[in-house]
Amino acid sequence: MLKDSGMEKINFSGGEPFLHQRGDFLGKLVQFCKQELRLPSVSIVSNGSLITEKWFQKYGEYLDILAVSCDSFQEETNALIGRRQGKKSHLDNLHRVRSWCSEYRVAFKVNSVINTFNVKEDMRDQIRELNPVFQCLVIDGENAGEHALREAEKFVISDEEFQDFLDRHSEITCLVPESNQKMRDSYLILDEYMRFLDCREGRKDPSKSILDVGVENAIQFSGFDEKMFLKRGGKYVWSKADMRLEW
């Protein structure tokens, strides 16, 4: 239904999308979107902890972009933020997944949420070492205020602090900063019930499901801002087949 309505790009995120059936269910979705729907771009956002080389061997050819969340290159800071992965090193795993992306020709992206615990950090050397072949996306804090889904006020930084971080990393050419405002209104988000989520009021207000009322009806309640989408550079080269990648 989404493809028939003009969808060209789909991104699977969570929670952690690799949790279900050790990623096999996700892999089948990725394969279906590329093989059957022939979408130009299929991407995933993951914390990287459950990804295996076996998954890449089976499904890597159908995936255009893999974004791995990494909010800090210091293990103790990751623990404070909540990125601890048991006894595993989040950073070791990040580099392992990066190498698989290179081997199986998947564009690699780093997502960092800049917050109270990492806003003073200098990530330049680590980003250069990882050499993302795609955008390094940096956004400021989210989910603050009276109606927050979780207590996130302690993570939230000021606009000035965010700008200081961007200035410090201005030489990183792959960095693409996105503020809360840009993030909130410039994405079409569907939940597990196939409802568009309207984030304009700082909440995630659901539309009716596209399975009940169709895409055209439901999308009217998505809060999507096309001008903001274009302003943040939402239209770019999506398919790895069209990217100039250095493997």
Rank of each mutant, 00 (worst) to 15 (best):
Leu149Ile: 10
Leu149Ala: 12
Leu149Pro: 00
Leu149Arg: 00
Leu149Tyr: 05
Arg150Asn: 05
Glu151Lys: 06
Glu151Arg: 07
Ala152Glu: 14
Ala152Pro: 15
Ala152Gln: 13
Ala152Asp: 15
Glu153Pro: 11
Glu153His: 05
Lys154Thr: 06
Lys154Met: 08
Lys154Ser: 13
Lys154Glu: 14
Lys154Pro: 14
Phe155Ala: 02
Phe155Pro: 05
Phe155Asn: 05
Val156Ser: 09
Val156Ile: 04
Val156Cys: 06
Val156Met: 01
Val156Glu: 00
Ile157Tyr: 03
Ile157Val: 08
Ile157Asn: 08
Ile157Ala: 03
Ser158Cys: 02
Ser158Asn: 01
Asp159Val: 14
Asp159Leu: 09
Glu160Asp: 13
Glu160Lys: 06
Glu161Trp: 05
Glu161His: 06
Phe162Ala: 09
Phe162His: 03
Gln163Lys: 09
Gln163Leu: 14
Gln163Val: 13
Asp164His: 14
Asp164Cys: 06
Phe165Tyr: 11
Phe165Arg: 00
Phe165Gly: 02
Phe165Trp: 04
Phe165Glu: 07
Leu166Tyr: 05
Asp167Pro: 11
Asp167Ala: 14
Asp167Gly: 10
Arg168Leu: 10
Arg168Ala: 11
Arg168Ile: 14
Arg168Met: 10
Arg168His: 11
Arg168Glu: 03
His169Met: 07
Ser170Thr: 09
Ser170Pro: 10
Ser170Asn: 14
Glu171Leu: 15
Glu171Arg: 03
Glu171Trp: 10
Glu171Asn: 09
Glu171His: 08
Glu171Lys: 03
Glu171Asp: 13
Glu171Phe: 12
Ile172Arg: 00
Ile172Cys: 12
Ile172Met: 04
Ile172Ser: 01
Thr173Met: 08
Thr173Arg: 09
Thr173Gly: 15
Thr173Phe: 15
Cys174Phe: 02
Cys174Gly: 06
Cys174Glu: 09
Cys174Lys: 00
Leu175Ala: 04
Leu175Gln: 07
Leu175Cys: 03
Leu175Glu: 00
Val176His: 04
Val176Asn: 06
Pro177Phe: 00
Pro177Asn: 03
Glu178Gln: 07
Glu178Tyr: 13
Glu178Phe: 07
Glu178Lys: 10
Glu178Met: 04
Glu178Trp: 10
Ser179Cys: 02
Ser179Trp: 03
Asn180Thr: 09
Asn180Arg: 03
Asn180Gln: 09
Asn180Ile: 01
Gln181Gly: 14
Gln181Leu: 10
Gln181Ile: 09
Gln181Cys: 07
Lys182Pro: 13
